[in-house]
Design a protein around this nucleic acid. Structure first.
Length: 153
DNA sequence: GCCAACGTTGGC
DNA sequence: GCCAACGTTGGC
């Protein structure tokens, strides 16, 4: 299985790359979108690369990279009535939502703003900048990954 | 804070 | 299974 590449969105007010830098690893909980769930459950594997994207901030930007440390497994917050991600339809033996753990790899010397991504013709097909895109977990091609690493270093 | 673009829900 | 109403996301 060859390595795949992904982009994860987070609002820095909730969880930023600085938080990940401090903790080194975290579980990526709270994804409640079926398309994103399918990626987490079926396609995202240990060792895959992840771009860490800050949404709903100024400017919105790719802040750095991290790495997936295990395959998808059930998101425990769906079973907890006190958790804001509680999902009453889920049962322990039949989970609806999945998550992975990620570890900090590096923060870019230069964060890459959404503006710069839009201005780079090599990145014009990125899912991130397609109109109406709202996925919080999405695939990135190897070419896009390489180009973004070049821009950030 | 606004609002366009989606996703989900639920009545029929 | 359709679709209107509603909720959420996320750039600006």
């Amino acid at each position: 299985m060859s390595k795949k590449y992904w982009l994860f969105k987070s609002e820095p007010g909730e969880f930023s790359i600085d938080d990940l830098k401090k903790n080194k690893t975290t579980y990526w909980d709270g994804v409640r979108n079926y398309q994103a769930r399918n990626f987490l459950r079926d396609e995202i594997k240990k060792g895959d690369g992840v771009l860490f994207y800050h949404s709903n901030t100024d400017p919105t930007e790719i802040a750095g990279i991290c790495e997936v440390v295990n395959d998808g497994y059930p998101d425990h917050t769906q079973f907890d009535p006190k958790n804001k991600h509680y999902f009453p339809g889920s049962k322990e033996n039949n989970p609806t939502w999945f998550m992975v753990d990620i570890k900090f790899v590096k923060e870019f010397n230069k964060h890459i703003s959404l503006q710069e991504i839009k201005e780079n013709p090599k990145l014009k097909n990125m899912r991130l900048i397609q109109k109406g895109n709202r996925l919080s977990v999405m695939p990135v091609t190897k070419d896009e990954w390489d180009e973004i690493l070049k821009m950030g270093s």
